[in-house]
């Protein structure tokens, strides 16, 4: 059986007045049903851009995309990069759904929750029903979904407007909206960033439950490595538009292989170590995507550059090397694994 999602050599760039923004370069990864892939990386590393590409959400007139994005939903397959807009639109919201960071602004302020939920269902399922039965069914389904994502008194609240819901409740509504057509793939772009900590945990729990319910593949984009450890199976670490390390959660956390990943881990508090550690931020800033540094894009910020004798990190670009099965990195270092809590 082929994979739910297979991304091959995906590059996305935006020609702008200031120059070409290379937001994503030569990205390859895959995802199966029931699996959760986390994408982590600093702000601007291309996480959203690459996931938007999977939904074909980039404006074709102002974006250059190359590579392949193969989606396989059993009965229908689609290669998104080359597919015509109508074909992509037919899977959007049906087979592939997305949840965004800010539930406050992601719902239309002027339409009721029910209106927004039913619209999504009707677009993809209403076609072969007469409008009255379709509407009635859609509203039924909307209430059912609100119920499923844990909104109390769903029958009444479905008629309310977004501003009448709290942030956490709105994110539940967004999840209901994304799942109303029972998608095969769910992309959650920082679904908990705008929420407070207790609500974050609830929303993550809900996502996990929903994944089981619908047997979905989930891509979880986040800054929060704590979140990642809890809910994901595999992790993609991105830096300046490139995938610098990928592996299972244990690979990334305990067999860290890329200096950038190590830097990320050092900048979060670890609960398991028992002793209070010093948190260390990665020095410097991510590079401009218009004028990327020569060689490895991380080299200007990397502590290990001087230890690499085989190559010149500031001139050569490292290829992806598999350090273990399913665990690979883009780095010239001789050591395969880097100790956590060190490196500075």
């Amino acid at each position: 059986m082929s994979r739910l999602l297979e991304v091959k050599d995906l590059s996305v760039s935006f020609p702008t007045d200031a120059g070409v923004v290379r937001a994503t370069q030569n990205l390859s990864f895959h995802l199966d049903r029931g699996e959760t892939l986390a994408i982590v990386g600093e702000s601007g590393s291309g996480k959203s851009v690459s996931s938007m590409a999977i939904m074909g959400l980039h404006n074709p007139g102002r974006t250059e995309i190359s590579g392949e994005i193969n989606l396989n939903f059993g009965e229908n397959n689609l290669e998104v990069v080359s597919a015509p807009e109508e074909k992509i639109r037919a899977i959007r919201g049906k087979n592939v759904a997305m949840i965004f960071q800010d539930p406050m602004s992601s719902l239309h302020p002027y339409y009721s929750i029910g209106n927004q939920l039913t619209e999504s269902w009707l677009i993809h399922n209403g076609g072969n029903l007469d409008s009255k039965t379709a509407k009635a069914k859609a509203w039924e389904r909307a209430v059912e979904m609100l119920d499923l994502v844990g909104i109390p008194d769903a029958g009444r609240r479905v008629k309310e407007f977004p501003h009448q819901f709290s942030g956490g409740m709105r994110q539940r509504v967004m999840i209901a909206l994304a799942l109303i057509n029972g998608p095969d793939l769910l992309i959650a772009d920082e679904p908990t960033t705008a929420l407070d900590v207790t609500v974050q945990a609830q929303i993550l729990g809900l996502l996990k439950d929903m994944q089981k319910e619908f047997n979905m593949g989930v891509i979880l984009i986040t800054h929060d490595l704590g979140v990642v450890a809890e809910v994901s199976d595999r992790i993609n670490v991105m830096y300046a538009g490139k995938l610098v390390e990928e592996g299972t959660v244990d690979d990334i956390f305990y067999r860290t292989s890329h200096p950038y990943t190590q830097g990320l881990l050092n900048s979060i508090p670890r609960v398991d170590s028992g002793v209070a550690e010093k948190l260390v931020a990665i020095p410097g800033q991510p590079p401009s995507l218009i004028a990327l540094p020569k060689g490895c894009a991380f080299s200007p910020r990397c502590e290990y550059v001087r230890q690499v004798s085989s190559h010149d990190c500031k001139v050569e670009i490292p290829d992806s090397i598999e350090v273990a099965s399913g665990h690979s990195r883009k780095c010239f270092l001789k050591e395969t694994y880097l100790p956590a809590g060190k490196g500075r």
Partner: peptide, 13 residues
């Protein structure tokens, strides 16, 4: 606006 992106993600024309 974000809600326009949401609509697009729903598959609205």
């Amino acid at each position: 606006e974000d809600f326009i992106r949401t609509a697009r993600a729903k598959g609205v024309s």
